[in-house]
Design a protein around this nucleic acid. Structure first.
Lengths: 234, 234
DNA sequence: AGTCATGATACTGCATCCATAATTATGAAT
DNA sequence: ATTCATAATTATGGATGCAGTATCATGACT
């Protein structure tokens, strides 16, 4: 069930995988903004490859929900509607909540020390208002939790959902005051883990995610609606 | 976010999609058993197409977790370990439970009538010991519930998980007595929906799925271990 | 006899080429 | 001037061809 080809040994990733990864980065960076058409031959020329592996990469991205393939028309970066986001986040909260719950059950003292260490980083980055590093440490915290929970399938679904969420323009952490609130929520989650209270940890993580969605809603509501420059497909 | 190219209009599905669908059928029918290598050019020859769309289809199936791509080696049908199954089912139960919960909140009387009608079919097929039709109606029941719940992303995750589960040799309904038990559980779920009790519906659906997993475990435990004829990859 | 090295074979991975369909531009008619 | 029809263009979808690598078989050496 390991989708990743490089399961255990170092084997040069296939070209289409490399291309897919580069495209993901450009999509997440909004260098390829939602709704923008993807010009196969232009990209193939830019990467110095043929269209074949590029097309294979696009199939993969389509399966991940990052792009939409229109037969005989082409391919554009997925545009998330508000409804889409309202559908993804509750599921994300459900899954992450379950991870926290399971992690609270299984975490050893070593695990907890590791989580506490990452949380310390979070405290530092939050104090320094370093959003980027906070974001990075935040991802490591969640990844560590997933590992402790020990369910690879669950972890994979969360990673997939996170990719979809990353399609949105900016994460909610940019919102004034959100960093501090996020940190406070993390602190409570850690506390629940320390208490080895699965139910509490699960609920707090669940609420943490929904809190992030609410912050994002404020962010979107504040700025204008979608409307990036690119030609939006039907 | 509609991964399906044919979003709303009738547009001939791309060849790679048709191929992917045919391969899925063959995989689910265990005509291509787990662990068996997939010979690209042999299949391309059989389908009367070139290897290009076939390879694209395999990329899609790999993203779905149905096959594993080994760079420079080839591609084989995913083999689920017992651990894999033990990871997927709890997640499936979580997701389906959520669907039932949400459906209990939103179901109108029309919706309920529809569910009750499908359940009547289930009763009939169970009485007639018609496992295949029971299975089919069962899927429609769950699909209807997903529609009522109204979260497409959640529904998609469940569909994906179901695909993975279908990799296993036989579904648990084949087990003696399981049909009747499954029906009884369905009856209780329907009852919870009728009572419009989201929590109860969610819990009962959740337990229903785990009960299915337990039945499957008995099935696997009874027969021998994996060991299908094909050459098993490392 | 067993093991390792070497060569043959077969299949994957990528590039190139061609056909087809969609889009756009152009021109004519109202 | 606007709109519709037609033709040219462009890009996608699929097929074919070729290079590189992994596997398997054969043979030599210990």
């Amino acid at each position: 069930m390991n989708a990743r080809p490089s399961s255990h040994i170092l084997t040069a990733p296939a070209l289409y995988e490399q291309v897919a990864e580069r495209l993901r980065s450009r999509i997440f960076a909004h260098e390829l903004p939602p709704g923008s058409w993807i010009d196969e031959q232009a990209l193939a020329l830019e990467y110095g490859i043929s269209r074949t592996p590029l097309r294979e990469a696009l199939k993969v991205l389509a399966a991940e929900g990052l792009v939409v393939l229109k037969p005989r028309r082409g391919c554009y970066v997925t545009q998330l509607s508000e409804q889409d986001i309202d559908e993804v986040f509750p599921v994300m909260a459900l899954l992450e909540g379950r991870v926290a719950e399971e992690a609270a059950r299984r975490a050893t003292s070593v695990d907890f020390a590791r989580l506490a260490a990452i949380h310390e980083e979070l405290e530092g980055h939050a104090a320094g208002n370093d959003t980027d590093r906070f974001f990075e440490a935040n991802q490591r915290f969640h990844a560590a939790l997933q590992e402790i929970a020990g369910n690879r399938y669950l972890a994979q679904l969360i990673d997939d959902a996170r990719k979809v969420i990353k399609l949105t323009r900016r994460d909610s952490l940019r919102l004034e005051g959100r960093l501090k609130q996020s940190l406070a929520e993390h602190r409570e989650i850690l506390e629940a883990l320390r208490l080895k209270d699965p139910g509490l940890a699960g609920r707090r993580m669940h609420d943490h995610l929904l809190s992030g969605r609410a912050a994002l809603a404020r962010l979107v509501g504040a700025s204008s609606t979608a409307g990036d420059g690119s030609s939006a497909p039907a």
